[in-house]
Simulated assay, not measured.
Amino acid sequence: MTAQGLRPRSWFGPALVFLALLALWWASSHGDWISRVFLPTPEATLDSLREGLLTGDLLAYSSATVSRMLQGWLLASVIGIGLGAVIGISATARTYLQPTLEFMRPLPASALLPLAISLFGLSPNMVLSVVAFGAMWPVLLATVHGFAAVEPRLQEVAQCLQLSRRDFVWKVGLPNALPDILAGMRLSLTVSLIVAVVGEMIASQEGLGQAILLAARSFRASELFAGIVLLGLIGFASNALLAKLERRFLKWQQP
């Protein structure tokens, strides 16, 4: 059976789960299991989503959040890959820096918002710095692992060929670490979206986070759920696009 023949079946299960959750939502809201003040109907949510995108500010808010997410993610990726390559290629650097990395890695980015506010004020740069910090760790640690896992015999071959450190990183280390790096970047993209929304909520920056918070404070449940649905769509689309790019970059690994 061809891969094309498997695709409809591979989508059937996820589609069935999605429809079941949608049916449960519809039954819960229409059956008044939960007050509509807190749980709007799917139809009301769809109406708020359509109205917000066509005539409201949802499109501008979405653009601001996506821009903040992508900027923080790109900055985190550049810093994470650069530092990860430097640390991963050197056993000495890993020995000295690994404890510090393990100490800083679990720190939640949202907990650093007060520090970022004191340094940058309530500005877009403050949110961007926190997004980059939170999204950097998956890329950094994945890059360190990828470079550290280079086959020792490849290092011996590189020494025999008298490859410089730069050539070894570019021609041997990076291809070996690429699967780990791309996996870390996919996780980092999700983290950047989460931290961007949290930053917008706390720092009152324009975006979906601020829109959702204001809707919750005003008990506009349909607008709140519309924002949540939009965030889910952004996360799903960005992850699907990056997964497609990952398969393309790693095509040489496929049998």
Rank of each mutant, 00 (worst) to 15 (best):
Q4W: 09
G5R: 07
L6H: 07
P8L: 10
R9E: 06
P14S: 09
A15D: 01
V17F: 11
V17Q: 09
A20H: 01
L24D: 03
A27H: 06
G31W: 03
S35C: 05
R36N: 15
F38V: 13
F38I: 14
L39H: 10
T41L: 06
P42T: 11
T45Q: 05
T45G: 06
S48H: 05
S48V: 00
S48F: 04
E51D: 14
D57Q: 08
L58M: 12
L59K: 04
L59E: 07
L59P: 00
T65A: 04
T65Q: 02
V66K: 01
M69Y: 01
L70N: 04
L70A: 08
G72Q: 02
L75D: 02
L75E: 03
S77Q: 00
G80P: 02
I81G: 03
G82R: 00
G84E: 02
A85Y: 00
V86W: 09
I87M: 06
A91M: 02
T95G: 13
T95Q: 12
T95C: 05
Y96A: 11
L97N: 04
L97A: 11
T100K: 04
M104T: 14
M104V: 15
R105E: 06
R105P: 07
R105G: 09
A109F: 09
S110P: 01
A111E: 13
L112Q: 12
L112M: 14
L112N: 13
L112F: 11
S118V: 14
F120P: 08
L122M: 15
L122W: 15
S123E: 14
S123G: 07
P124T: 13
P124Y: 14
M126G: 10
M126F: 13
S129V: 15
S129D: 08
V130I: 15
V131Y: 05
A132H: 08
A135N: 10
M136G: 10
L141N: 07
A142F: 05
A142E: 06
T143P: 08
H145W: 02
A149H: 12
V150R: 05
Q159C: 09
C160S: 14
L161S: 13
L161I: 08
L163M: 15
L163K: 00
L163E: 12
L163P: 11
S164G: 15
S164M: 04
F168Q: 10
V169F: 08
L178N: 02
D180F: 10
D180N: 12
D180Y: 12
M185N: 04
M185L: 13
L187E: 03
L187A: 10
L187D: 05
S188D: 09
T190I: 08
V191Q: 05
L193A: 01
A196L: 08
V197S: 01
V197F: 06
V198E: 05
G199M: 06
E200K: 03
M201E: 07
L208F: 03
Q210V: 05
I212C: 01
I212N: 01
I212T: 04
L213F: 04
L213S: 10
L214H: 01
A215D: 09
A215R: 00
A216L: 09
S218Y: 06
S222Q: 11
F225H: 01
A226K: 00
A226D: 00
L230W: 01
L231T: 08
G232Y: 08
L233P: 03
L233E: 03
L233W: 07
I234R: 02
G235K: 09
A237Y: 12
N239L: 14
K244L: 14
F249W: 14
L250K: 05
K251G: 09
W252K: 08
P255N: 07
